[in-house]
Amino acid sequence: MRILSQAVLSGILAFSTAWVNAGGLETLQKFNADTDGISGQFSQSVKSKKRTQTTAGTFAIQRPGLFRWEYTQPYKQIIVGDGNTVWLYDQDLAQVTKRAQNQTIGDSPAAILSNKTALNANYSLSDDGSSNGIDYVRALPKRSNTGYQNIRIGFKGENLANMQLKDSFGNLTTITFSKINTHPQLNRAQFKFTPPKGVDVLTQ
């Protein structure tokens, strides 16, 4: 599995629109309480000691429990969470990986997106200063088995700017968001996935 795929399963992640005069933490908490759906575009980079990989695509999230993350560049790949199962379809490999959703996302940032109670239950949150006009919140996992050292969520003005996720191996995933819509018209059918004919389906 490509490293970016694992990053996004663990990094599908805490999107938001900031409120005027609110600090990063207050903004994130308000988003977590009030937002039921979100969509937009993303660019993503995963930086390891040896190389940096970049991708781009689109996403959609509907609470509770539904998400769709599509890579469009430089390859095509789809990750869908339907509330029970996470499906990862790699078109180049003609392969689908199927996993139980509660076991896949656990305490990950994906859980923050799809379930309102996960944020405060699984992370210790604090304001983390500002840089280049972006206000940051730091999320530290309360348990040591999440795979992440820390997550930083950045807001610029009224919009989410980026997320930075540092994993237990020291790899840094940065996701930059654009064209955010916090009131998307989403159809539940968008979060259904049927493996195409002829592809290998692996269950993990």
Results as ranks from 00 to 15, higher is better:
Ser39His: 12
Thr176His: 00
Leu4Gly: 09
Ala7Ile: 02
Asn159Gly: 10
Arg68His: 13
Gly129Gln: 09
Arg152Met: 00
Tyr71His: 07
Gln29His: 15
Met1Pro: 03
Asn115Val: 10
Gly198Ala: 05
Asp92Trp: 01
Gly81Tyr: 10
Asn187Gln: 15
Lys192Asp: 14
Glu158Asp: 15
Tyr71Val: 08
Glu26Thr: 11
Gln62Trp: 04
Phe191Glu: 04
Val201Pro: 12
Thr58Trp: 06
Ser131Asn: 03
Thr176Trp: 03
Gln62Val: 11
Leu4Pro: 05
Leu165Lys: 08
Ser126Gly: 14
Ile61Pro: 00
Asn21Phe: 07
Ala94Arg: 11
Phe177Asn: 03
Trp87Pro: 04
Lys98Thr: 11
Ile12Tyr: 01
Phe193Glu: 04
Phe193Lys: 09
Leu4Asn: 02
Gln95Ala: 04
Leu119Thr: 09
Trp87Met: 02
Val199Met: 06
Ser144Lys: 09
Ala110Asp: 05
Lys47Phe: 10
Lys76Tyr: 10
Gln53Tyr: 14
Phe169Ile: 11
Gln44Lys: 02
Ser108Pro: 04
Pro196Glu: 08
Asn145Tyr: 08
Thr52His: 06
Val86Met: 06
Thr176Ala: 12
Pro64Thr: 06
Leu66Cys: 15
Glu158Asn: 15
Gln95Val: 11
Ala139Cys: 07
Gly65Ser: 14
Ala18Asp: 04
Pro196Cys: 05
Ala18Tyr: 01
Ala189Thr: 15
Ser131Glu: 03
Gln101Cys: 06
Gly37His: 05
Lys49Asp: 09
Phe169Trp: 05
Ser124Gly: 06
Arg143Ile: 05
Gly23Phe: 03
